[in-house]
Design a protein around this nucleic acid. Sequence first.
DNA 1: TCGGCGGTGGGAAAAAGTGGGAACGAATGG
DNA 2: CCATTCGTTCCCACTTTTTCCCACCGCCGA
Lengths: 151, 151
Amino acid sequence: MFRGANKITLDAKGRLAMPTRYRERIVERSNGRLIATVDRADRCLLIYPLPEWEEIEQKLRRLPTLNPVARRLQRLMIGHATDIDLDSSGRILVPPSLREYAGLAKTVMLVGQGSRFELWDEALWNESREQWLKVDESTDELPPELSSLYL
Amino acid sequence: MFRGANKITLDAKGRLAMPTRYRERIVERSNGRLIATVDRADRCLLIYPLPEWEEIEQKLRRLPTLNPVARRLQRLMIGHATDIDLDSSGRILVPPSLREYAGLAKTVMLVGQGSRFELWDEALWNESREQWLKVDESTDELPPELSSLYL
DNA sequence: TCGGCGGTGGGAAAAAGTGGGAACGAATGG
DNA sequence: CCATTCGTTCCCACTTTTTCCCACCGCCGA
């Protein structure tokens, strides 16, 4: 599974060199085929190996079409999903439209999140992280899954 | 179990010599494989033997993705989790990004906390400890788990 | 005092990141 | 239908980072 935060620079052509430690796993999992789409809440991109994405797309499709929240999710996630493959030197090309959505400039953060990656503009990632740290998580606000969590 | 506070100096490359008394236990527990990540509240790092970390990651990943509190936890903990191995002379290399996060300069404190270690910048550790001592914990505010605790 | 162990530092080899150029293919316009 | 141009992809080479290994130093116990 994917974890850890990596600072990466996009080159002039918008290419992103996937860190070596992930490459092997991506190739064996999906033969280098990835799907990028937008996050529903934050200005960042989500990158899934193709098999994982297909499961998610299944679930999204089964949501009731008449429900506005579901509809919105489908439009955002399926609507922006783009195939991106690892090239022969382990790089991916982030499409301009998605790059623009997430405000990706020269330096970005590739963040492992289990079965997927998140891709953030570096400055936005740092700002957001500071926000998350500031929030005081008083125990009584926590959903039941969290309140009994021991780390 | 890991106990005790150790003052350690990082060398110029960010390497940290694990105190000898922990080495054997780390090697037999996880073959020298550790995971470092950030603490969700304090500016310090958490260091787990790989098996312990994997349990935690499991729990975190099962949390609902659409819940903002859960998402924040996942991003902080899984998002920063980095593999670090004991090298041939019992040292670990703390990645620059994590070093920066915790403000680790030359001298740091490695603090045993049961199944994991905490890694603090020495100055920050001392300040924080003073804070903890100052806080007056009036008994009637204590959650039930604590009010019956005998130390 | 000598030997060993733990801590420290540095250097060299290997690997990974980075950038640019060339070739190929598709699209557009004459 | 052909030619030119733009975009994409593949490949090579350079630079930087990482990793591994070895040697030194200082302390402690014998």
